[in-house]
C-alpha cells in the first residue's frame, strides 16, 4: 500500500490471487479432529466424575486453601522483591564484602532445591533448638523455643520468600545493568546522589526489563506454593489432598485444583501485560496500545 503512495496515483494497487496452501487446511483439520476427540473422551469419561468437580469447586476447604495459596504467593513475592532489590544493589556495589555476600546468597539459594529448603526451614529447631536474644558474653534477655516459632506458615514463607529473593536478585540485577552508564553520568552531572539516581532514574527504567520476568516468577510462585503441602500447610493442593484422602475422589479433586490455578494464572497474565504497558512509557508507541487493540485480529499481509 505504501507503493501506491510513493508512485504516481494512476498506478492501481496489486490484486493478486493468493498462493494456495493445502497443507495448512489439512494440518488444521487434523488438529481440530484430535481436539474434538479429546474433549469428547474427557467429557464422557465417568471416571472423571464431573459432578464431583462441580460440587467441590466452591467447597469451603478448597476456597480457604485458595486464599492461603494467594496469601503465600503475595507474601513470598513481597519478601522476594524487597530482598531481591537489596541483593541486586549489593551485587553491583563497590563494597567487595556486600558483593561477595550477595553472590554467595544467590548461589546457595539457587543451588539447592526449593523442596529441600522448605523442609530444612520446617526442621530448623533440629539445628538451632533455641533462639536467644542477649548480650554476647553477657546475660540472656530472652530465650525462644524455635519449635514454637517455626509454624508451617513461617517455614513456608521463609522457604518460598528467601528462595524467590535469589531469583529476583538476578532479574533486578540484569534490569539495572541494562541501563546505559550515560544515564547515571547525566544524573550525577545534575547533582543527583547515587540513591536518588537509583530511585528516580535507574529503577524506573529497569522496570521495563524487570517486569516481564517478574510476572513469570509470580505465576511460577503461585504454582510453587503447592510444594509446601509437604509440611502440612493448608494451601490449595493440601486442602484437596485432605478431601480425597478420605473420599478417594483423587482425579476430580486434582481437576478442581487445576481449574483454580488456571483461573488465577490467567488473571495474573492479564495483570502482567497491563504492567508491562505501564512501564514501557517513552519507549515504543506500541507500549501505549490498548489491550483490546493488541488482541485484535490482524491478518498477515500476503507475501
Amino acid at each position: 500500500m505504501q507503493v501506491t503512495e510513493t508512485r504516481a496515483p494512476v498506478t492501481a494497487p496489486i490484486r493478486a490471487v493468493p498462493v494456495r496452501r493445502p497443507g495448512r487446511w489439512i494440518s488444521g483439520a487434523i488438529l481440530v479432529l484430535a481436539l474434538v476427540w479429546l474433549a469428547r473422551a474427557l467429557a464422557t469419561n465417568p471416571r472423571l466424575e464431573w459432578s464431583v468437580v462441580g460440587d467441590n469447586l466452591t467447597a469451603g476447604p478448597i476456597l480457604r486453601g485458595l486464599v492461603t495459596t494467594l496469601e503465600l504467593t503475595v507474601v513470598a513475592m513481597a519478601i522476594g522483591l524487597v530482598l531481591g532489590v537489596l541483593l541486586a544493589i549489593m551485587r553491583l556495589s563497590d563494597n567487595p564484602v556486600a558483593r561477595g555476600f550477595a553472590w554467595a546468597y544467590v548461589g546457595l539459594f539457587r543451588g539447592t532445591p526449593l523442596l529441600v529448603q522448605v523442609i530444612l526451614w520446617y526442621n530448623l529447631s533440629a539445628i538451632f533448638p533455641n533462639l536467644t536474644i542477649g548480650i554476647p558474653g553477657g546475660p540472656d534477655l530472652a530465650v525462644v523455643d524455635v519449635n514454637l516459632l517455626i509454624t508451617p506458615y513461617a517455614a513456608a514463607i521463609l522457604g518460598l520468600g528467601l528462595n524467590e529473593a535469589a531469583y529476583l536478585a538476578e532479574i533486578v540485577r540484569s534490569g539495572i545493568s541494562s541501563i546505559s552508564p550515560g544515564q547515571r553520568q547525566a544524573a550525577a552531572a545534575l547533582g543527583l546522589s547515587r540513591r536518588q539516581t537509583m530511585r528516580k532514574i535507574v529503577l524506573p527504567q529497569a522496570m521495563r526489563v524487570i517486569v516481564p520476568p517478574t510476572g513469570n516468577e509470580t505465576i511460577t510462585m503461585l504454582k510453587m506454593t503447592s510444594i509446601v503441602s509437604v509440611i502440612a500447610m493448608h494451601e490449595l493442593l493440601y486442602s484437596a489432598q485432605a478431601i480425597y484422602s478420605q473420599t478417594y475422589q483423587t482425579i476430580p479433586l486434582l481437576i478442581v485444583v487445576s481449574v483454580w490455578y488456571l483461573v488465577v494464572t490467567t488473571l495474573l497474565t492479564v495483570l502482567q501485560s497491563a504492567l508491562e504497558r505501564r512501564f514501557s512509557r517513552g519507549h515504543t508507541p506500541a507500549g501505549r496500545l490498548s489491550l483490546r487493540s493488541r488482541l485484535a485480529f490482524r491478518p498477515k499481509e500476503s507475501r
Binding site: 546505559s180 550515560g182 544515564q183 553520568q185 547525566a186 544524573a187 550525577a188 552531572a189 545534575l190 547533582g191 532514574i201 524506573p204 527504567q205 521495563r208 512509557r281 517513552g282 519507549h283
Partner: peptide, 16 residues
C-alpha cells in the same frame, strides 16, 4: 557539581 551544567555527546536524556 550542581553549579556546573554538562551536555553530553549522546544527549542522555531520561527516556522514561
Amino acid at each position: 557539581r550542581a553549579g556546573i551544567g554538562m551536555v553530553f555527546q549522546h544527549f542522555d536524556l531520561f527516556p522514561h
